[in-house]
């Protein structure tokens, strides 16, 4: 059973979202998602400075058998990317919630986070997918 961290918000497309103390948010993919993808071989990150809308596909994570888009959870501007993933994409598998983060956003409206899935709702989603 994949880990779902309680202190994070999620999207149904399997990104996790963390509100940092300085008001920025960090985005990565869930343990469930990395497990479903299998060995990650490549990550394409957005450009720092890029403005994004909620729902824009701004990054790609690629395994041998699949490639998935990563969607911006809320509108904002990209302020940092995890360059380590370019040379060590396996970090996404090894540490999806910590070292394997994708990008950070400076968001216009932190309250928009409330519209994302809670950990509980996301755990239910994963359970229903695993049951299929």
């Amino acid at each position: 059973m994949a880990e779902v961290r309680e202190d994070l918000r999620y999207q149904s497309s399997h990104e996790w979202v963390r509100l940092e103390e300085d008001g920025t948010v960090t985005v990565g993919i869930s343990d469930h998602a990395q497990d479903a993808l299998g060995d990650v071989v490549f990550v394409e990150l957005p450009e720092v400075g890029q403005s994004v809308n909620a729902g824009d596909d701004i990054a790609v994570v690629e395994s041998v058998k699949a490639a998935s888009d990563i969607y911006a959870p809320i509108a904002g501007q990209v302020i940092a990317c995890n360059d380590r993933l370019e040379s060590e994409p396996e970090t996404v598998n090894e540490s999806p919630f910590d070292d394997g983060w994708f990008f950070k956003l400076e968001v216009t409206d932190p309250n928009a986070l409330a519209s994302l899935l809670t950990a509980e709702a996301y755990a239910d989603l994963c359970a229903s997918e695993e049951a299929d």
């Binding site: 490549f42 690629e62 395994s63 041998v64 058998k65 490639a67 888009d69």
Partner: peptide, 12 residues
């Protein structure tokens, strides 16, 4: 690099 190709990536 098959993930670029149509049989996996379909419309993208």
């Amino acid at each position: 690099l098959q993930a670029r190709e149509q049989h996996i990536r379909r419309g993208k």
